[in-house]
Structures are given as structure tokens and as C-alpha cells.
Design a protein around this nucleic acid. Structure first.
Lengths: 149, 149
DNA sequence: ATGCGACCTGGAGTGCGCTCCAGGTCAAGC
DNA sequence: GCTTGACCTGGAGCGCACTCCAGGTCGCAT
């Protein structure tokens, strides 16, 4: 029932390396972590919770610099909650926009896929050509008119 | 009615810099572009179309290396269409997964936002406090029990 | 003839986010 | 006492995707 976590445990839990964990601390994404007498870090529940959010924001591409600003707000105390809200909400908006963009791009890519499928359908490769009508001779070379991009 | 585009036109159209355009060419994302006698590049419709797709794939975070492979397939001719399809389809799957992940993370972030909103609601900042019930005295200091992360 | 703007080249530089490393300490187990 | 494994430090290095730069050419307008 330890009320702290070792670096190894935290790294494991969040799928980070020890190096990254230390890097985050140095970069100001976590408050300075407590130490055991040996000098080894001891992560508290608070640290782990903040790290959870940090991880979440990093995974959604918030830059380190912005994360540092956020972490600073957290360190500055409860009166910064409105500011933190603003950071998180603006990030949500950003994510909405990003998701919408990805979807749009997916549509474009899908058009290209459909185009290729169409090309294959009228001009299938030998090993996946549907059975030719019985009695037909050997297939002629299917000359395609250049690269349709 | 020119049947080609200048670097400036292409850059403008796709929101790229001339440097990036040249970088893409050097990196093998485009085939080698034709030149005017002056040595200036002349982009054909084909180039522009490929660039459109390249842009689309880059915007959705396909790495340059993978894009180069794809462009190579395009250069290699129509028989690579099944391979190109595989690249595009696997990218679509990747995008589906990415979008799903972003949504999940959004949920987590939203929980945090709601949490902060809750804190603000029970403990509003002075300048946004709802009117107190009539007859109440000055508000006591609202001591919060530490950082709720 | 001069100036201008668009473009050319090869190569160096930048910013980000890690990642790796050498050399060291500490606690526990054999 | 010695080894092992987890961790420590400061600092260098890396991969990616650009981005910038110096010095040059070309064609056109004044």
C-alpha cells in the first residue's frame, strides 16, 4: 500500500521512458518531484494525476511549451482555474477542428481509392481477373493511356 | 491558357513555400519536374494532381519516407496500383484509429473541464459570483483543501 | 544599360521532442 | 565484500520536416 510510485512504475503505467519522464520534469510539465533519501524520485498521486492529463494533452499534440504554461497554472493555485479552463477548452476546439480536417482529407483519399478500384475493376491484374467468358482467347495486352495520377 | 504552372502559382495554390516545394522534389515526393529553357520549373497538371494527394497525405501526418515510397509506386507505372491501394487503405485505417483516439482523449479532457466547472460553480470567483441570497453577510474566505490536480 | 522580380543551386541552420550516454550512487541479496 | 538492478546527473546526439541563406541567372520593363 505504498502512497507513492517509483519512476519505473510511472513509466510503465504511462508507456513513457524514464528519460521522457525526467525530460518532462525538467521542461516544467510536472512540479519538482519528491525524492527518497537515496535521491530517487517518488511520485505522489497528485503527480500521477497531473501526468495523466499531460499525457492526454501530449497525445493530442499539445506542444510542450503550452503544456508547461498549463502546468505552471496548476502550480500557481486554485485561482488559476479559469485560465486552465480556457486552455483546455481552446484545446478541445482545436481538436474538433483537427478531427474535422482529418475527416475531410479522408474523403479526398477515399476518392483516390475509389478511382484506383475503378481502374482495377475495368482492367484487373492477371491473378485476380474474374473468370473470362468461356471460349475467349488469350487476353490482349491492356495498354493504359499514361498515368492517371 | 497555359498548360503548366510556375513554382509561385503552385506554392500559392497549396499553401507551400518554394523551399518546401523544392524539398519535396528532392525528397522524391514528386517526379523530377520539367524545366523552362531558363531552368525555372514548369509544373504540369500531373504534377499538380500528385501534389494535391501528397499534400493531403502530409496533412494527415503521413511521414515523408512513406510518401516517397508511394510516389515511387506512381512513377513505376500502372501495375503498382494494387500496392498504392494498400498504402492508401492502410492510411485510412490509421486515420480512423487516430480519430478514435483523439475522441477518447477529448472525453478525458472534457471530464477535467467539467471538474473545473464544478469547482467554479461551488466556489465562484468574486467577479462572476451569482448574486448572494439577500441578507447574507460578506462571504467567508473559501479555503480549498489543496490542489485537486 | 539598369533594375527588378521570380527563380535557380548547394548546403547550412532551426525547432521540436525526445533519446542516448558515461560515469556515478544506493539498497538488497548472495 | 561483491554483484545486480534501479535509479541518478549533465550534456550530447538524433530524426524529422522543413527553413534560410548567399550568390547566381534569366527575361522583361524603363
Amino acid at each position: 500500500m505504498s502512497d507513492y510510485f517509483t519512476p519505473g512504475q510511472v513509466a510503465e503505467r504511462f508507456g513513457l521512458t524514464l528519460d521522457t519522464l525526467r525530460y518532462y520534469e525538467k521542461a516544467g510539465l510536472l512540479r519538482e518531484v519528491e525524492r527518497a533519501p537515496s535521491g530517487h524520485r517518488r511520485y505522489r498521486t497528485d503527480d500521477v494525476e497531473l501526468l495523466h492529463l499531460v499525457r492526454c494533452l501530449r497525445d493530442t499534440d499539445m506542444p510542450i511549451a503550452r503544456l508547461r504554461d498549463f502546468a505552471e497554472l496548476v502550480r500557481d493555485g486554485d485561482h488559476t482555474i479559469p485560465d486552465r479552463l480556457e486552455v483546455l477548452q481552446s484545446h478541445q476546439h482545436h481538436l474538433n477542428a483537427r478531427i474535422a480536417e482529418l475527416r475531410e482529407r479522408q474523403d479526398t483519399i477515399q476518392h483516390k481509392i475509389d478511382h484506383y478500384l475503378g481502374v482495377l475493376a475495368e482492367n484487373p491484374a492477371p491473378d485476380e481477373r474474374p473468370l473470362p467468358p468461356p471460349g475467349s482467347g488469350p487476353a490482349p495486352e491492356t495498354a493504359s493511356a499514361g498515368e492517371g495520377s
